[in-house]
Design a protein around this nucleic acid. Structure first.
Lengths: 162, 162
DNA sequence: ATATTTGCAAAGCGTTTGCACGGTT
DNA sequence: AACCGTGCAAACGCTTTGCAAATAT
């Protein structure tokens, strides 16, 4: 059956090859923020006739079409998620690498106000929180660790902040 | 004369080689957010006996020592600035690539509140605004441009938001 | 039929690293 | 003197690309 993203591709008149269909399906089914290698892994499971170069090209194409959004949570690899309705942000659990999505209208307004004060309109913004679960036995502080390094490309928890 | 950063190095007992002294001076004098190539260029102007590998190593060392902070404004290259007193954020002018610094205590509080609502303590956060100057003849929209791409490593304007 | 897309392997880019040499303490 | 820092060039990890073969419209 046609995946949500495949439908978007057709709407935009993209040539639908087998490979694109597979990547579209993988992305439609993903509830997380996979990187290219992970996408490649998942796509390969559905169809071996895919090279990682094609995944890179497809992901880039989808991004240009506004179907996909690229995220950078640190650690060198880009990660992707289907474009959603409203803007939302990410809280990365520094212990586990899990990504929690949240939104907060108040924050957007504040950003617009700050930019305005400096004489700018906000074109886009980047916000990521790196946090540690509360009220649990805290591991010994490891200040030299770059918390970005251990981010995992699987798993996401969605949470609303208001 | 001894640069501000050189003093910090000595305090921490780092071995002060000619190269480190030069990089320290370049960083002390920088009011902006240079990338490694730019640092290398500026350092080379003061002393040819520097290789880019050493700049990479020095910058990494200084970061580990808390003397320097690494920034990622997109575009693939890391950029650096001396650690300042309080936390501040960056607004990048998408037309010119200029970086404007600002701070906003209200924002920090809001972030802490959002994280708390989700059961987390904020370990660190990343916030960048990409904006366009207001009230000027707007260039034709170029939606396909990745605004991050054209970010320049020179030039910074400091501004306070409250 | 024709323009696009693909796979492969090679190249690209920023960054790191092994090694022998050189400088700092 | 002992150790650590340096230069060079090679290696790295992620991403892009040239080219000829395969495929969608």
């Amino acid at each position: 059956m046609e995946s949500r993203i495949e439908r978007l591709c057709i709407e935009r008149g993209l040539k639908m090859t087998g490979q694109r269909r597979v990547v579209a399906r993988v992305l439609s089914d993903a509830g997380d923020h996979p990187d290219v290698e992970e996408l490649y892994r998942r796509a390969s499971a559905l169809d071996q006739h895919i090279s990682i170069a094609t995944v890179y090209r497809t992901v880039r194409l989808f991004e240009e079409q506004g179907i996909l959004e690229r995220r950078d949570f640190g650690g060198g690899r880009a990660r992707y998620e289907p474009t959603e309705d409203g803007p939302h942000y990410h809280l990365i659990d520094v212990e586990t690498g899990k990504v929690i999505e949240f939104q907060d209208p108040e924050h957007e307004q504040l950003m617009r106000a700050i930019a305005a004060r400096l004489g700018f309109d906000v074109v886009s913004l980047r916000l990521e929180l790196f946090g540690r679960r509360r009220g649990q036995p805290q591991p010994i502080r490891d200040d030299n660790a770059r918390h970005e390094a251990q981010t995992d490309s699987r798993d996401t928890i969605k949470g609303a902040s208001r």
